[in-house]
Simulated assay, not measured.
Amino acid sequence: MHEIQIPNGYYQLWLRYLSERGLMPEQLGFSAAQLQQLQHVLSLPLDTQSSYLLFTEVIQHSIQFLDCPQLIFELAAYIQPEHFGVLGYMASRSNSVAEAIQYMMRFSRLVVDGSAAVPMRLYQQQDALYLSWPLVDEKYSLIHEMTFACMVQLATQIFDFQHSPIREIHFAHAARMPVRQYENFYRCKTLFKQAKYQIVLNLDSLTIQPQQADPSLIHLLTKQAEDAIALKPNVDSVLQQVQEMVAQYLRQEENIPSIEFVAQVLCCSVRTLQRQLKQEGTGFKQIIEKERMQRCEQLLIQNLGLSEIAQQLGYSDQSALARAYKAYTGQTLLKAKQALQQGEYEKK
């Protein structure tokens, strides 16, 4: 798994925070090696990306040295569009909250990149909109807090909110400080140790317009963002990305994703995705079936009932699951369950 890369704007935000307090990085007790790394990163253009692990070291050290557990919130108070690079400018000049969210989904790699960076998922339930990320690894919890705080703070600058559009904030990790401090900052209910990271928005907030919408500038910024994305190396092949997305969707949503959803997350058309998969010798339906069967075997080991497994895998009933499994493996579900569970028993 490749290391996460984050915007150099985050480092510059930290430097500005120190500057406002009359401090220099050299005064915070960093090692010579850390200072050398910091000097290199701070010399790079604002819209490039650098190590998340170094940033974690810097922030955790700063929290301890300055005795400031709420440092993330204090950093976010200085956020400006340029700290998010071209994506920040696109959000500030978009025509609505909904359009800004679309740009976030399409160009998220310009902010946080790497194979461990899972694209944001967007879905609606009744009158609420959910922006969602899964928990990949506890070591990335700090970047979620940093990004959530900066996104919310920047949004309040860009959009003229009469009332907060945020209903709830969900974190998958444990709270780093008293929950009331989070709720005072976000001005909404904040939950921890949840199934996933989520920002829950009122649906009627999507039409709110920014104070400086500029469609002509957005056209130029979109071209710039597309060029920047095109220059990035593929973290994984399209086949690997689709396999990982389908497997993750089956685990988290207990259903199968549509090809339209997968194409949207990968920022391409359905036709383009189909062509790319064909070039790799497979198709979307074949990937779905393979990942279903692998997930089926994982659930068989867990001793789940066949009806429940069928439901989680998007089959109409257990008969449909049994037929699909037999056609794919040449083995009945009963024999597969016995063999898999025997294998697990022998491992023990």
Rank of each mutant, 00 (worst) to 15 (best):
V270M: 13
M293L: 06
R106H: 02
N255I: 08
S62H: 04
G9I: 04
L35S: 03
E297G: 01
Q153G: 00
G305C: 00
I63E: 07
A76F: 01
L122N: 06
Y140H: 02
L300E: 02
G330E: 03
C150R: 01
K232E: 06
Q194C: 12
W14P: 00
F284Q: 04
N202S: 12
F159L: 12
D47V: 03
R180W: 09
S51T: 03
R121N: 06
R176T: 13
A322L: 04
R251A: 04
E346F: 15
R16K: 15
D67C: 05
A230T: 11
P69N: 01
C267D: 13
S92P: 00
S205W: 09
K335Q: 15
K232L: 15
V111I: 15
D137P: 10
Q240L: 01
V41S: 05
Q248I: 06
E138M: 11
A98M: 02
T207V: 14
I143L: 00
R21S: 00
R93L: 06
N95G: 14
R295H: 14
V118F: 09
R21P: 01
R121Q: 11
S237C: 00
A213N: 07
K139I: 13
H163F: 13
T156C: 09
Q80E: 14
I63Y: 09
M177Y: 08
V118C: 05
Q311S: 13
P233V: 11
G283Y: 01
T282V: 07
A322C: 00
A174H: 13
G314A: 11
S132K: 12
K223S: 06
L250P: 08
A339H: 14
Y123Q: 03
Y103V: 08
D137W: 06
V262C: 10
K189C: 13
Q298G: 07
L110H: 08
Q70I: 06
A149S: 08
Q209F: 01
Y78C: 00
P69E: 07
E57C: 03
H170M: 12
G22K: 03
A175T: 03
L203H: 01
E244V: 06
T332K: 05
E168R: 11
Q36P: 02
L66D: 03
I288Q: 12
F185H: 03
T332G: 04
D227E: 13
S141Q: 15
G29M: 05
W14I: 01
Q294F: 04
Q274A: 07
A77N: 14
P25K: 11
E82Q: 13
E344H: 14
G330I: 02
F185W: 04
Q338Y: 13
R271Q: 14
M177L: 14
Q194D: 07
R292Y: 02
V242R: 07
C150M: 00
Q240Y: 07
Q80R: 10
I287Y: 01
Q157T: 00
D160K: 11
Q36F: 09
P119L: 04
A230I: 09
S43T: 06
A77K: 15
Y182S: 08
Y52V: 06
Q302V: 07
A195Q: 15
D236M: 05
L300A: 07
